[in-house]
Amino acid sequence: MTEFIQHIVNGLSFGAIYALIALGYTMVYGILQFINFAHGDIFMIGAYIGYYAGNALGLNDHPSIWGFFVVLLLSMVTSGVIGFLVEFLAYRPLRKAPRINVLITAVGVSLFFEFGAQMLFGANPKAFPHLVDVSKSFYIGGVQIDSMELVVFTVTILLMLALEFVLYRTKVGKAMRAVSHDHNVALLLGIPVNMIISITFVLGSAMAAAAGILVGMSYPKLEPLMGVMFGLKAFVAAVFGGIGNVRGAVVGALIMGVSEQLIVSYGVPTFRDAFAFALLIVVLIFRPKGLFGKTLAEKV
């Protein structure tokens, strides 16, 4: 039993990271109805920024909690800017284009980041620096919780609370929800739609960057293609939770993290990566709107 709970805890910490990425997918989908394929690569870039910033600050030799926050913030801000640029340069000119064109562009942007990163950062894996001392572990009734997991939980919960606040307690959040209902009406009401879309991308990218830092710290191996699998799985989590639904994405991501952990522990570890896609196909066929989503019929 303790072992089972242990797996659940480990799965939740994985799921929390998926959740941070899934939020970006779901927010962008909610507002533009398209899958930002490049989102997983922003996550990768966030991790790399953390790598360079951490090393530049010499944190590997002198881990500190403040250094960690500086790196986290730096990575989130820079990735936010990159997210903004991607939207501004690649997606905005296509606002009125057929959706398939936007989809192809997103695929293109994603490839560009992946192979640009190989050129810029090198194709070989890099070891992420130790930002904080995470060697301690805690025990609660026989269940081990690493301090890394504590960091993951704390950071994700704080970020999610912050996002929740922005979405539901501020004018910007209200405007975002309005835009996701109907661009034209929002425009008529005087909402600066383009700016709101930019903010959505910035927020989503920043969250993904945070996830990148956390992944870097937990599994200290960076690769230019690391965003692909994480991104796809986070996307599956978002669809599972009901794409466009922020809270659904979090629940979906946690379930996904835990199920993966259980598959690895009790099933066939090599099929871990296939699980997400199998889940996706099942969800899309039997409940395309996901756990908490709503579907809209096409107007005829």
Binding site: A274, A276, F277
Partner: peptide, 14 residues
């Protein structure tokens, strides 16, 4: 559109 793209991509990966 996008959903189909993801499902077919998932198929390839599986």
């Amino acid at each position: 559109g996008d959903y189909l793209a993801i499902v077919t991509l998932g198929f390839g990966e599986i």
